[in-house]
């Protein structure tokens, strides 16, 4: 058992921030870099969380397999989402992806034989790697930090590569890129699969940390939270997404120190997120480090 250097409260916060960094940076790949108005990212996160939890609790899969399967399965759903929506433009695409998010939550609630519906899945085991079980929160934090670092590094490499450059070109002028001989639809598939994969593994980290998940973790308010972080950080800015994950997740912690009752802290947090979102859209739509506009 490693020594606890930092308080459990901070450890817990940092674990969530790490998970959100993966979730938000992967959303930025589709939303910011590729210009896909994807409002269904949280559904891919949910699919990853449930996949990993069910594989371990129902089928006793080893963690590594469940973890990777969470990514692959979520990536597959990302593929399906683009396949289904490729004909739609602008806000209809956004709405179809939002509709997809609603449907996923609804299925999680109704496929009771598989998901236990609103009761959720309890007793999700802690991950074990190479015979070592990650038991304490502190070691879980180290694990999350490593996964987050590797994920961000990979996405960073992708966006800086020639492939990443044509993702950005797809966002700026799709027709202009097609007449240069690039298959932009295929590019969108690839972007969504990669983005879905990382959302899925973030979901796996989320499920195994909490050891309990239910559909309420993946509602509309969660979509607003990840969108707020991406927009505050700035579209097509990985640095911005990371910084904004810290800022946005830490701000509502103020409510705790005001000694407010928990019945106010929950909604209060949502109110803060919504206010930040509306304010930033109105006064600084490019966020902290954004280079591009949301269109």
């Amino acid at each position: 058992m490693p020594v606890e250097f930092i308080s459990p409260y901070i450890t817990n916060l940092l674990i969530f921030i790490g998970i959100y960094i993966i979730l938000v940076v992967s959303l930025n790949l589709t939303l910011g870099y590729t210009g896909m108005l994807n409002l269904g990212h949280v559904a891919l996160f949910a699919i990853g969380a449930y996949t990993s939890a069910l594989l371990m609790t129902r089928l006793d899969f080893p963690f590594v397999i469940a973890f990777l399967a969470a990514g692959i399965f979520a990536g597959f759903f990302g593929y399906v989402l683009v396949l289904a929506t490729k004909k739609l433009k602008g806000d209809y695409f956004a709405l179809a992806t939002l509709g997809f998010a609603f449907i996923v939550v609804n299925l999680l609630l109704n496929l009771q034989g598989l998901t236990h519906g609103p009761l959720g899945i309890p007793g999700i085991p802690k991950p074990s790697l190479f015979g070592l079980t990650i038991q304490s929160n502190f070691s879980y934090l180290i694990f999350v930090a490593i996964v987050a670092f590797v994920s961000v590094f990979i996405i960073y490499k992708i966006v800086k590569s020639p492939f990443g450059r044509i993702l950005e070109a797809t966002r700026d002028d799709e027709i202009g890129l097609r007449v240069l001989g690039k298959n932009t639809v295929k590019l969108k598939y690839k972007a969504m699969i990669i983005s879905g994969f990382f959302a899925g593994i973030a979901g796996s980290l989320f499920a195994h940390y909490l050891s309990f998940i239910d559909p309420s973790s993946f509602h509309l308010s969660e979509i607003i939270l990840v969108l707020t972080i991406v927009i505050v950080g700035g579209l097509a800015s990985i640095k911005g997404s990371i910084l904004a994950s810290f800022v946005i997740l830490l701000i509502p912690e103020v409510l705790r120190f005001l000694a407010l009752p928990s019945s106010i802290i929950g909604p209060g947090r949502q109110i803060i997120y919504a206010l930040i979102l509306i304010t930033i859209l109105m006064y600084k739509p490019r966020g902290l480090f954004g280079r591009v506009d949301l269109e």
């Binding site: 209060g268 109110i271 919504a274 979102l277 509306i278």
Partner: peptide, 26 residues
């Protein structure tokens, strides 16, 4: 007036929805 796109307006409207719902709850 700032030439925000329809998607920005959609996202803002979801923001208003969440904001007011939680105000009602408080």
């Amino acid at each position: 007036n700032k030439k925000a796109s329809n998607v920005i307006l959609l996202i803002a409207s979801i923001g208003i929805l969440i904001l007011v719902e939680n105000l009602i709850q408080i």
